[in-house]
Design a protein around this nucleic acid. Structure first.
Length: 360
DNA sequence: AAGGCGGGGCC
DNA sequence: GGCCCAGCCTT
């Protein structure tokens, strides 16, 4: 029997009830697909629900402030996704009359939408026959057809795209694509695939050859590089000094406690004090260590120490574009990420228990 | 073609 | 502690 038929029959009985599968609203499909990029279903669910409560339709998102949009993304990672989504939605609002376009060229031209996401939106929302090839599909097909090449290579991707297109259902491309992903996440899993319950076991090359555990071939990543940092929780009265990170690079545009990279030697305190003065113009007095943690990103590791500091009252520097003195009410609108989010939570708990005075 | 970009769950 | 995830963008 053909792959598509087996897959659709299996999917009919075992598809999951997910928040974004309740209807075919292109906007909801779009949001879910962006959130699901490199992110597991279970992690996305609560974010998706909160998002739809606040931004129920395309126009409500298009009209929103970027600050609030990013705040709803806080903790989900890859924050440029949120900015690109907002930009893309505004493009649709202005150039397409608020209707998500229906051609591959138009959809892929929107910010944050690449080959995979375009295929997913068009097939799921509009039932267009477009492949949607993600990590799951690459894995499933590398096993089904014994693709021995590194699946991150363009040659392997091209070959698999052709195979998927050949096998795709004519009548139900959306269900076909989703079924493939469901299969990849629940049965044809990375380490030890559950071939005993796989509907495609009889047409699987890897299973036949007993090499389902060796495929797919994928080259491994380099270990993250470690960096030592010190951050200042700088207070003056009920106000704390926060800094907004640049719009490109790691944690782009997110707010943080002013941070200085320190060396390996014992001069850390002096380097920190001087670095803070250069970055913020602020003279500080170090009081004590509040929190120390290691935070691992994909390609970087932060060993960061948060120090409680008092700003000299006669040398307070006013706000500018990327530097702000904020009280607790103000900073609850801002977005933190990584270890700075942990620090923020620590402060909020502290503030709930006692007043700021207890820091002194 | 390669590297940057988060965070969390699972083994 | 390593691996991997409903990838995209820039260089």
């Amino acid at each position: 029997m053909k792959i598509a038929q087996l897959l659709l029959t299996w999917y009919e009985n075992s598809k999951r009830d997910l928040p974004w599968r309740r209807d075919k609203d292109p906007y909801k499909i779009w949001v879910s697909e962006i959130m699901l990029q490199q992110t597991r279903v279970e992690a996305v669910k609560p974010y998706f629900d909160r998002w739809m409560e606040r931004f129920p339709d395309l126009e409500s998102l298009a009209e929103a402030e970027e600050e609030e949009v990013v705040r709803h993304w806080q903790g989900l990672g890859y924050y440029s996704r949120a900015r690109n989504l907002l930009q893309g939605v505004r493009e649709v609002s202005q150039s397409y009359g608020g209707q998500v376009p229906q051609t591959k060229e138009e959809v892929i031209g929107l910010a944050g939408i690449g080959d995979y996401t375009a295929g997913a939106i068009l097939s799921i929302a509009y039932n267009k026959k477009e492949p949607a090839i993600d990590g799951n599909v690459l894995r499933v097909f590398s096993r089904l057809f014994c693709i021995e090449e590194d699946i991150s290579s363009s040659a392997a991707k091209k070959a698999i795209k052709q195979l998927v297109t050949d096998e795709m259902s004519e009548e139900h491309p959306g269900d076909f694509n989703q079924a493939l992903m469901d299969l990849g996440s629940s049965i044809c899993i990375p380490k030890t695939p559950r071939c005993a319950v796989c509907p495609l076991a009889d047409c699987c090359c890897a299973k036949r050859k007993g090499k389902e555990g060796q495929l797919p071939v994928k080259k491994k990543k380099a270990p993250p590089k470690a960096v030592r940092l010190m951050a200042g929780v700088i207070r003056q009265g009920e106000f704390f000094l926060l800094h907004q990170r640049p719009n490109k690079g790691l944690l782009a545009g997110m707010w943080e406690f002013p941070t200085v990279e320190i060396g390996e030697d014992g001069e850390a305190m002096d380097i920190f004090r001087q670095g803070i003065q250069e970055k913020t113009g602020q003279v500080i007095e170090l009081e004590r260590l509040l929190l120390q943690c290691t935070h691992i990103f994909s390609h970087r590791q932060w060993d960061i120490s948060f120090y409680y500091c008092i700003a000299a009252p006669d040398k307070i520097v006013p706000n500018d574009r990327e530097l702000k003195w904020v009280n607790r009410t103000d900073w609850e609108k801002l977005s933190f990420a990584g270890p700075h989010r942990k620090m923020e939570k620590y402060l909020v708990e502290k503030n709930n228990q006692e007043s700021w005075q207890s820091f002194e």
